[in-house]
Design a protein around this nucleic acid. Structure first.
Length: 815
RNA sequence: GCGGAUGUGGCGGAAUUGGUAGACGCGCCGGCUUUAGGUGCCGGUGGCCUUGGCCGUGGGGGUUCGAGUCCCUCCAUCCGCACCA
């Protein structure tokens, strides 16, 4: 037994110093002929200190980055901080501490811990989105989008959180409540800034096919964009002589439209009918919260408007209603209602005694089933379209409407424009000046950044806290020099994080957000890693920015993230870790107790990183034991063997095992991200070494193979446990493992001398035998048939067939 | 309701192409080392019965010489969306 023992603290500190002193992970923008690889973890939001999810994402990302480097790539692996945002501001309101102070304290803590974890970051590219040197370019990019009409201002019914006193994006409203504080969201009419992401709906949808993302994320994005194809059909109201277009995905059911419904917000509702009942209904509908209105089994309420519209296909007058199950935001805010073939319309019609007219046959067994029927079938009660299949009638009716000027094919999206303005302090100022004469005036590029001023009172009161900074707000119009006022809203922090991956490529450029040629050298991100919680918002916004910037000619890719890996959540006792449950595992404590290598390995070992994984306090001890075993094996090898160029003598089992492990880790990590089985393979190797230690060390050849196996284990564990990997490798070879090419398995050593052949009788395993590799099929079958166990079990039956799988098994079929 | 996943020992999880189910780790049992505890090392560990078997990958059915893996069906759990016309 070696006198000294494994001391991760000392080893880890030593290697961290080497990497920092030598700037081992910095990478130049110069092309040196090697293929590039851009490995990126999602931008962390610095709040308090890092949690277990951060440890996981960097453990995964760092393993990939190291693997890429050692397989010949020039790797960009940068890091920064998503530093603007509400939590820091709410903290400021509570404590009076400036958000910059609390944020920077947190950044310092994050930086310290990332360093303690030994993550291979190119620190020369570090950035914080709250730094003027960064948000100067956020503002610059905003102005480019403004010039293109992609950033615009309009009054809109917006989601208003009464608690945070700010507007929320649709995406930040969950079940009618503020995603952040849980308060019921209200609707307000306010002037707001939007990005025109809807212009990109089709491209955002189509280009999902060009990227290698998890199917579930692609599906979520697709659903969020929510493209539906159908037709716009015009219904005319004779009383007001007004056309009311509606969007429908089922023009084939037009002959079954027996009423017409408008959303309570529709501007024409009171023009059509301003009776007390209608006024009261509209008033109550508008007062209802989004949550109340969205309740699932809520009754379909509504009031008749006392007017009719003309169904364009048959000239029928059908009654108009106002009902809150119709949404103003989608389509035209009015619908044609076909109760026989739409569940919602059916429910409403039953309640209000409206005619239900079947126009498509079908249902169970081709017979007419119950209504509402939403499936396909032949058309009935539809005039000259009778008898056609409804899918065909769909096309014909749309064509006919087009000829008559009563409709046309149309596409609708669920996606809404991105509301980016926030009435909060701690965010990027919007670089616009409001001038009475000139209107919205962009701040000239050479006056950027518009610096966020220091203020004393952060509490929002329905307007941005910045509005109180009079000296800052009052400004001369950049266009006409008349007294004007700055925009006091700040940007949604999603704006900051929608382009940071571009800035990393050219992080110290102070003449532009980036140089187009430099960007061409790095983009797209080859491997993006983060949590599923960003499956929609962040990833959609970043894709939109990338496409918009490509259109402006600022860059040359259409998609920012070629490959996406979404990690699963680490749970404890099957439950999500949370402070309130008191079941959080602190990375800092883990690293203090077991070392960063053990913490990183364990989190990658507990299961496939894409899945969740249940934290087990005892589990990490097993990994710590394994690392100590590897350290001791290396120490023994170093003490009892001489350095050599490679393993000597005839290959023994341990040498084969080492090559087996090389092969296994290479495919598991390189192709499947299966870090858990990759680490298990190294554990197996080290366990085998430990068992054969005394025998191997007894001969010079055995010792050299033992030494080789230990160095190989160090080399293979390096992507997961970089400190110990470096230590072991240096001890045994005198070289730096991260400068070494990734080891290659010798195919000759991957094949064993013998294989176990299984003998099955009618598919059940009853015997096994050892055979030389490459045994002839006939020989394999002969031995199997000769098995005593077969004879014992045959019991008078006859072997009628033998299935031979070479090198694997023989299945004897007896009858 | 729609969409996406997932169901394997006491637990986390392996089995990558239809071919030895349970790798590896935790836990547990036994042994050795140790003054003792811990550490370390060695062996065992899916279930059931009489030492040889039988059963076993959420349930049921199917395809196949052979199914955790493919097909049908049902159930359960998780995630996302949800009055989107």
């Amino acid at each position: 037994m070696t006198a000294e023992s494994y001391d991760p603290r000392e080893i880890e500190r030593r290697w961290q110093r080497v990497w920092a002193d030598e700037r081992s992970w910095e990478v130049s923008n110069e092309d040196d002929g090697r293929p590039k690889s851009y490995v990126l973890e999602m931008l962390p939001y610095p709040s308090g200190e890092p949690h277990i999810g951060h440890l996981k994402v960097y453990s995964v990302g760092d393993a990939i980055a190291h693997f890429k480097r050692r397989t010949g790539h020039r790797v960009l692996h940068p890091l920064g901080y998503d530093a603007f945002g509400l939590p820091a501001e709410n903290h400021a309101i509570k404590t009076g501490q400036h958000p910059r102070e609390s944020t920077e304290a947190s950044i310092a803590e994050f930086r310290r811990q990332f360093n303690d974890w030994g993550v291979s970051i190119d620190w020369s590219r570090e950035l914080g989105t709250h730094e003027p040197s960064y948000y100067r370019w956020t503002q610059w990019l905003f102005l480019r989008l403004f010039e293109q009409g992609l950033a615009y201002r309009k009054e809109a019914a917006v989601n208003w959180c009464p608690n945070d006193a700010t507007v929320l994006a649709n995406e930040q409203v969950v079940d009618g409540r503020c995603e952040r504080c849980g308060a019921l969201v209200e609707q307000r009419q306010l002037e707001q800034w939007f990005f025109k992401i809807t212009d990109y709906a089709d491209r955002l949808l189509d280009d999902l096919e060009t990227i290698d993302w998890p199917q579930s994320v692609v599906t979520m994005q697709r659903n969020w964009i929510g493209r539906s194809e159908g037709a716009e059909v015009v219904f005319h109201c004779d009383d007001l002589d007004t056309d009311y277009p509606v969007f429908t995905t089922r023009p084939d059911t037009l002959f079954g439209a027996t009423f017409f419904v408008m959303a309570p917000e529709h501007p024409d509702v009171l023009r059509l009918d301003d009776s007390p009942e209608v006024r009261e209904y509209v008033r109550r509908a508008l007062a209802a919260s989004a949550e109340e209105r969205g309740e699932e089994d809520r009754e379909k309420t509504g009031v008749a408007l006392g007017r009719t519209v003309t169904n364009p296909v048959n000239g029928e007058q059908i009654p108009m209603y106002v009902a809150d199950y119709v949404l103003m935001e989608y389509g035209t805010g009015a619908i044609m209602a076909v109760p026989a073939h739409d569940e919602r319309d059916y429910e409403f019609a039953v309640k209000h005694g409206i005619e239900i007219r079947r126009v498509i046959e079908g249902g169970e067994d081709g017979e007419d089933g119950e209504l509402p029927y939403t499936g396909d079938g032949p058309m009935v009660a539809s005039g000259r379209f009778d008898g056609l299949h409804n899918r065909e009638a769909f096309e014909r009716i749309v064509a006919w409407l087009g000829d008559e000027g009563k409709g046309e094919p149309a596409v609708n999206y669920r996606l809404r424009d991105w509301l980016l303005s926030r009435q909060r302090y701690w965010g990027c100022p919007i670089p616009i000046v409001h001038c009475e004469r000139c209107g919205l005036v962009p701040v000239p590029d050479d006056q950027l950044p518009v610096v966020l001023p220091d203020i004393d009172d952060y509490a929002p009161e329905g307007r941005s806290p910045l509005a109180a900074a009079e000296d800052w707000v009052a400004v001369d119009c950049p266009s006409c020099a008349a007294p004007a006022r700055r925009e006091t809203d700040t940007m949604d922090t999603f704006v900051d994080s929608s382009w940071y991956f571009l800035r990393y490529c050219d992080a110290r450029n102070d003449a532009a957000p980036w140089d187009r040629d430099v960007l061409r050298g790095w983009m797209p991100v080859d491997q993006y890693i983060g949590g599923v919680e960003h499956a929609i918002l962040h990833l959609m916004y970043a894709r939109f920015f990338t496409k918009a910037f490509a259109d402006i000619g600022l860059l040359d890719v259409q998609e920012p993230f070629a490959r996406l890996f979404t990690q699963g959540m680490v749970t404890r006792d099957g439950a999500k870790m949370s402070k309130s449950k008191g079941n959080v595992v602190s990375p800092r404590e883990l690293v203090d107790e077991f070392g960063a290598d053990a913490a990183r390995c364990y989190i990658l070992y507990v299961g496939h990183p894409a899945e969740g994984g249940d934290w087990n306090d005892k589990g990490i001890e097993g990994i710590a034991r394994f690392l100590a075993r590897l350290w001791r094996a290396a120490a023994d090898a170093a003490a009892q063997t001489e350095p050599s160029e490679g393993p000597a003598g005839e290959p023994t089992a341990v040498l084969r095992k080492a090559h087996w492990a090389i092969d296994k880790v290479t495919t598991d990590l390189g192709e499947r991200f299966a870090t858990h089985t990759a680490i298990a393979a190294v554990i197996e190797l080290v366990n085998d070494m430990t068992k054969q230690r005394d025998d191997l060390l007894a001969t010079p050849e055995g010792a050299s193979q033992y030494r080789f196996a230990a160095a190989t284990a160090g080399s293979l564990i390096f992507p997961f446990a970089p400190h110990l990997g470096s230590e072991v490798y240096e001890l045994l070879t005198g070289r730096r493992v991260w400068e070494e090419p990734w080891p290659q398995a010798d195919p000759a050593l991957l094949v064993a001398d013998t294989v176990t052949i299984v003998v099955q009788l009618n598919g059940k395993v009853i015997d096994r035998f050892e055979a030389a590799v490459g045994i002839a099929e006939e020989e394999q079958e002969r031995i199997a048939r000769a098995s005593e166990r077969v004879a014992e079990r045959l019991d008078g039956r006859e072997i009628v067939k033998a299935v031979v799988v070479p090198g694997r098994l023989v299945n004897l079929v007896a009858r």
